[in-house]
Amino acid sequence: MTSHAPHTILCIGSALWDVIGRAASHMRQGSDVPGRITRLPGGVALNIAMTLAQFEMRPVLLSAVGRDAEGDELVAACTSRGLVMDHIYRSEDLPTDVYMAVEGANGLIAAIADAHSLEAAGARILAPLRDGTLGSADAPYTGTVALDGNLTTTLLEEIAKDPAFARADLRIAPASPGKAERLRSFLLQRRGMLYVNLEEAGLLCHQSFDDSAAAAAALVKLGAARALVTDGGSPASDASPDGVIQQMPPEVLVTRVTGAGDTFMAAHMAAEQRGTDRQEALTSALQVAADYVSGETPL
């Protein structure tokens, strides 16, 4: 069956625990400073889903979560936040994934993403889209899908060609610059809207760009159905075959960075689900992201 409630968005990718250490001081390699350490539900797909829920969307998560205490706690936390967790793949022998990051006043210092269980689960997380639960090759899912690049290159290549995704409004994020090139298959198949930063756009295009407008236009020329490129406090750009629009984000004091891109993408998707035009959707997403990165983080 392919029917879905209004504003239902499938979120496919990582769901894990974020362990984030934040300090108010500038940091460098070897720094040992006081700060705060938090543990929250995270992962690109899950961050997107949680933000969508705040905008009264109905996020349905497709991911891998272990049948361990951490996994039970994660599922309960997500359910309480309004996420639909009925279709996640729960493994008996794979632990729940975890992401660890350290942030200072000068931004992200270092991070490690342990998403081995998601990678090991592979195509099993996509079963509901292939067995008729949410869709199939003969009756593809017709709603919006948020896809994150934490999946393996092989699985992403499968998705780019999979008839079960042929009619979906596919929105794609690379998860990190180190995983940006995993998304090249979507350019080759001329499928999906990409949400990337300037560095990620350069890696995908194998060239450097001076601004987001040039990067977004280049991604569309290479095959993206649409591309939205951010560049920190510099203008962000939304390119499609109809042209490029560009806006300056609000000026704010940055107090946190982990999850900012996911929040931006979710806010943009939610705005378009509500029927706003490209200009208004970009304005809304930039404001939500600015509010997020400037949010109070007691240290």
Rank of each mutant, 00 (worst) to 15 (best):
E73L: 07
D148F: 08
A215I: 04
L126G: 11
I112P: 00
M57E: 10
G71Y: 00
V33K: 09
P34E: 02
Q54T: 14
I112A: 14
R171L: 11
K161E: 14
M1F: 09
L126R: 10
D148T: 12
S63F: 03
L62T: 05
L83R: 03
T153Y: 06
L61I: 15
A69H: 08
R256E: 06
E157I: 01
L151K: 11
D131G: 12
G71V: 02
H206I: 00
P95T: 08
M27Q: 11
E280Y: 03
R190G: 12
I37P: 01
T142R: 15
L282W: 02
P140G: 11
A45K: 11
I20M: 07
G243W: 07
S3F: 11
A137D: 14
D18C: 09
T2W: 01
A5E: 14
E73T: 08
E157F: 02
G82F: 00
M50L: 15
D68I: 11
A64C: 15
G149N: 10
V33E: 00
F264Y: 13
L52P: 01
V65S: 05
F209V: 03
G232A: 08
N150V: 07
A24H: 06
L183G: 06
A260Q: 05
G13M: 11
G243I: 05
K161L: 12
A23N: 00
Q54M: 10
A281D: 01
E251T: 13
L74I: 07
D93H: 14
Q279N: 11
S63T: 12
L134N: 02
R182F: 03
I112E: 04
A168K: 13
D72N: 13
A180N: 07
L61N: 10
E272I: 12
A15T: 15
T144W: 05
L62K: 10
Q207K: 12
G259N: 01
M50D: 05
L83V: 06
S176N: 13
V252S: 06
L228P: 00
D211I: 02
A290F: 02
W17N: 06
S117G: 07
S237P: 00
A64F: 05
T276C: 10
N197G: 04
D93E: 13
G192Q: 11
H87G: 01
G35E: 03
V252F: 05
D238F: 15
L188T: 15
L61E: 01
L204C: 07
Y195G: 05
A180R: 10
Q29G: 14
P34Y: 03
A175Q: 09
M85K: 04
P128V: 08
V257A: 08
L253K: 15
R171W: 01
N197C: 06
R90V: 05
G66P: 01
Q247K: 14
A113G: 08
L253Y: 05
A15S: 15
A49D: 06
C78P: 00
P174Y: 08
D72L: 04
S14D: 01
L61M: 15
D238E: 12
I9W: 09
A281Y: 04
P6N: 14
D291V: 03
G21C: 04
G143T: 02
L194G: 07
I245T: 14
T2A: 14
V65P: 01
G233W: 00
M85L: 09
D72M: 08
D262N: 14
A225N: 10
R36D: 01
G223P: 02
D231S: 14
A289T: 07
D18K: 10
D138F: 11
A123N: 11
G30N: 07
